[in-house]
Design a protein around this nucleic acid. Structure first.
Length: 110
DNA sequence: TTGCTGACCGACG
DNA sequence: CCGTCGGCCAGCA
């Protein structure tokens, strides 16, 4: 349409992450793939980092890797912050890994 | 401006 | 099974 609609990869990531419903999680690869760039999963994680250090209200704690492991937990300012947030939403976590990952997994295309 | 890095993922040996 | 490498894009020194 117009140039204004051309959101950067970054902007798209934020939009998708904000769409994640309460008590649900998704993976970096799923977002990247949804955006059309399957290999850009790294950018998704980086966007999350920027969203925390920046002023973006993005529920980055709902985004984990393909294994359901809280890889970026240390980026929340503490190793337990991310886990606490997820458990607060009813997500079961053990050893920094989401147990019912398949049950709480949310696909951006849905 | 060039080059490196990064919360990933999949493939290869 | 485990270690290593390439790919993708954008931000930063």
């Amino acid at each position: 349409m117009n140039t204004s609609c051309n959101q950067s990869f970054f902007e798209k990531v934020y939009a998708v992450v904000e769409l994640i419903p309460y008590g649900r999680v998704t993976s970096y690869g799923a977002i990247a793939e949804y955006l059309g760039s399957r290999g850009s999963a790294r950018m998704v994680g980086w966007a999350m980092n920027k969203s925390i250090t920046g002023k973006h209200n993005v529920p980055a704690h709902r985004v984990v890797n393909r294994n359901g492991m809280l890889t970026g937990k240390y980026h929340f300012g503490g190793p337990d912050i991310m886990r606490q947030l997820l458990e607060n939403e009813g997500i079961k976590i053990e050893d920094d890994i989401i147990q019912n990952f398949e049950e709480v997994f949310w696909d951006p295309s849905m």
